[in-house]
Design a protein around this nucleic acid. Structure first.
Lengths: 249, 249
DNA sequence: TGAATAGTGTCTATAAGACAATATCCC
DNA sequence: GGGATATTGTCTTATAGACACTATTCA
């Protein structure tokens, strides 16, 4: 390992000779995901410029010089979707050399979870912005790219590697759902157990046992009963619960 | 959303006016982790240059212009630890603006799992390279920084945010161990159930039920009995098993 | 023979799935 | 009342933990 010091040396020099290394552009891209009407949906923006003009891309932006990655993601979310205070986590970093035909762009993808109504109402009427239904062509957590569909169920052309990014988002959500309270993030403040189960089934892409689901959720310490019941339904209304911010753990 | 097009515009321009955006340096850093003698260990390199001279850093390097992130990580692993064909996965991307005092450096941390003997034999005698024992000051998957200890059990000074990076690595390992076959990556090709349980307990930082562990592992479809038994032990030797690359899933 | 761990069999507690019965709301 | 779903209770099955017992190797 006699070549060992060369790295630290290089790092040191890099600080004073930025020209020595070709630096990539670094962006954050956001998968803003919601669950509605039995399907996952994601926020997409139609590209009006080349390359991939006319295709749909995830909202994204460059990371500012004095901005952390999380801050950049939160800023993009505010600017593009007018959303604040939503669940936001880093997802995966995509850096294939040719993923953007213009120049080297490394993107740190983030996952944002929003309740469907809130997402819809946050968006102004803008034809360039859509909340597209996702089609997941794989089961469980196998992973792989995901398709986005327009209103008529036809696939939208996705820009760059954004189909892979969305696939990674769905895989992450499926993986976390079993042990982390992320289902609540996709629902309004008050919700019934049925709505929560619908969301879980939508994320997982498979039906769940109702009895077992109820038991698990009620035993999970995440739910607080509100004492109120849902309204305007054509059947016996279920009790409304609220997510309890778990104090410990 | 009338400001919408500005992003795509910016991206487009960026390709032709690189000076408009201050680009960060992008590196990969590697947490090369092994389990030995009841403790997790990680490969660290003593820094001979400022900043943080004399402290210990994760092996890392710049991402080349035509290199994917995974390729860069594999290259660093070859160069720094002479290791090839080990389990390697992307871990998390660290990008706090001030994490490196010289310039903006965003690092894509990776996790590499190696069996202890192989790691030791791959390293030449180089005082600057150590396989330091890790002390994990938290339970379960709570997360947080991790300490590295020298031979005498004294904490080593870790460079930059590398204590956080190592903490993220341990958290990831604990999280995956339950459902992913990563324990095998920390063992030689042939191993006994006892050795596998030791590794699991080392990663998780807590004892496991022996009976239940055996049953789960034997039912897991990941183990192939070799028909041979361990040697040179002072008690009844256990059967040697081998990891079976799971065909499906 | 004794020490130490490997490996097997059985019992119990717990959680999930299946199913039935009752309760409650809207029409 | 009829339709639909909520909610409760019971039974069955799979799995984890606990424990007792036997097997095998080396000193």
């Amino acid at each position: 390992m006699s070549e060992q010091p060369s790295d630290t040396e290089q790092r040191f020099l890099a600080a004073y000779d930025a020209g020595e290394f070709e630096r990539p552009s670094v962006t954050v891209d956001l998968t803003v995901v919601t669950a509605d009407d039995g399907a996952l949906r994601a926020l997409l923006v139609r590209r009006d410029e080349h390359p991939d003009k006319g295709s749909y891309a995830l909202p994204g932006g460059f990371v500012g010089p004095d901005e952390s990655l999380d801050d950049a993601a939160a800023r993009v979310l505010r600017e593009k979707a007018r959303l604040d205070h939503v669940h936001l986590e880093q997802l995966y970093t995509f850096g294939a050399p040719d993923r953007d035909p213009r120049t080297r762009v490394i993107t740190v993808a983030h996952l944002a979870l929003v309740d469907a109504k809130r997402l819809q109402s946050a968006l102004a009427e803008d034809e360039a912005v859509v909340v597209a239904r996702l089609r997941v062509p794989w089961e469980g957590e196998r992973g792989g790219p995901v398709e986005a569909l327009d209103r008529d169920g036809r696939p939208l052309k996705l820009a760059f590697d954004h189909g892979d990014v969305l696939g990674t988002a769905v895989k992450r959500m499926r993986g976390k759902l079993d042990y982390a309270p992320i289902g609540f993030q996709l629902l309004p403040r008050d919700f019934t157990l049925r709505q929560l189960q619908d969301v879980h089934e939508t994320v997982l892409g498979r039906p769940l046992n109702k009895d077992s689901f109820r038991r698990r959720m009620l035993a999970s310490d995440h739910l607080t009963p509100t004492g109120r019941r849902e309204r305007d339904v054509e059947h016996r209304p279920g009790e409304l619960y609220r997510f309890r911010r778990t104090s410990a753990v």
